[in-house]
């Protein structure tokens, strides 16, 4: 029987045939079961001998069956998985991704650098009083630099701010002579310019202000160097040129090594190796006085930059109007870290 059973099991091709053989030999009416059931008729001497043989046969059959079963299960799983094959090259289902506006990307980056250097971010109104926009910044009423033609006035005394400097004045007023003042002020500003590739009647500035005892021009230089290195790379150098702003004295334009060519000269920097990106200077004593700081005790520096200019340089954008036209084909390019 053992040989017959093993021979038959050898021939099985699937689970069903295996099940049939299991019933045939090991089932309730199976051949082996019949033998075991007939044991009672055997003598006491024969019984253990036959019993042992029967158990051995049973174990052998069961062993083969379970081996076969395992084999069929694996094959079945393999078949099932094969049937589930997909095309991994089909495009993934989109998880929508938009973008932060490039100007805000730059603002956030600049903010984070200065926050890391211990600055607070300060803001103020875009519609401003003449006093904060001009007078308190050492631009009295008849000053040539504050032409009605250059600003959007609403009334004689109220206008769209032409720079973010009034935020500095408001902050100094609020601080009531306390030091240190360490702020940067991002925001929109307005000037009467016809919009073209390099001009916009609204644009974005970030200005910074530090006031404390013993602030020196060398601190301004060191601060800006630290900033431009973080913003444009550790190799960046700065160069200062004397300039004029009514609210700083001494005043300086700040050039950085051209980020396009690294300073060797290219079209962007007009072969000079330098790009002008910041205006800066030591806060004018008149400005300190008007905002309640004694210039004999306190000094400070201020600086400012155009966000559009930095974004244009950073991303290679050639027309300032792109920032305000909101062409999605433009904006989508900034959906990146």
């Amino acid at each position: 029987m053992r040989q017959a059973a093993l021979g038959e099991l050898e021939q099985t091709a699937n689970q069903q045939q295996l099940d049939e053989l299991r019933v045939k030999y090991l089932g309730k009416k199976g051949a082996l079961t019949e033998i075991l059931r007939g044991m009672g008729a055997l003598s006491a001497e024969e019984r253990p001998v036959i019993g042992q043989v029967a158990n051995e046969v049973r174990a052998a059959i069961e062993g083969v069956i379970s081996a076969k079963q395992e084999e069929y299960r694996k094959a079945e799983t393999a078949n099932k998985l094969r049937a589930e094959t997909i095309d991994v090259t089909l495009p993934g289902r989109p998880v929508p991704l938009g973008s932060v506006h490039p100007l805000n990307k730059v603002i956030q980056e600049v903010e984070d650098i200065f926050i890391g250097m211990g600055y607070q971010v300060a803001e103020g109104p875009e519609v401003e009083q003449d006093y904060y926009n001009f007078e308190a910044l050492n631009l009295p009423k008849n000053h040539p630099a504050r032409d009605m033609q250059d600003s959007f006035y609403i009334t004689e005394e109220i206008l769209m701010r032409t720079h973010t400097s009034p935020v500095q004045v408001r902050t100094m007023e609020r601080m009531k002579g306390e030091v240190p003042v360490k702020i940067i002020c991002p925001g929109k500003v307005y000037r009467r310019d016809d919009d073209d590739a390099t001009h916009s009647h609204v644009f974005t500035q970030i200005e910074g202000l530090v006031i404390d005892r013993g602030i020196r021009m060398s601190d301004l230089k060191g601060t800006l160097l630290q900033f431009v290195r973080e913003m444009f790379g550790q190799e960046t150098k700065i160069r200062m040129r004397p300039s004029f702003f009514p609210f700083t004295e001494p005043s300086a334009e700040v050039d950085v090594t051209c980020m396009m060519c690294g300073g060797s000269g290219c079209r962007t920097c007009k072969q000079s190796g330098w790009l002008e990106i910041l205006g800066s200077g030591m806060v004018h004593p008149r400005v300190l006085e008007m905002s309640g700081y004694d210039p004999n005790i306190y000094s400070g520096f201020a600086f400012g930059m155009g966000v559009e200019r930095i974004a244009m340089l950073k991303y290679g954008i050639d027309d300032i109007r792109h920032f305000y036209m909101n062409d999605l084909r433009f904006l989508r390019q900034f959906a990146r870290v």
Partner: peptide
């Protein structure tokens, strides 16, 4: 201006931050 040295301010350190609104 190129001959003016570079320095970093001494004095108390201040925590930098955004306001809640920002």
């Amino acid at each position: 201006y190129d001959n003016i040295p570079t320095s970093l301010m001494s004095g108390v350190t201040t925590p930098g931050s955004l306001t809640r609104e920002q």
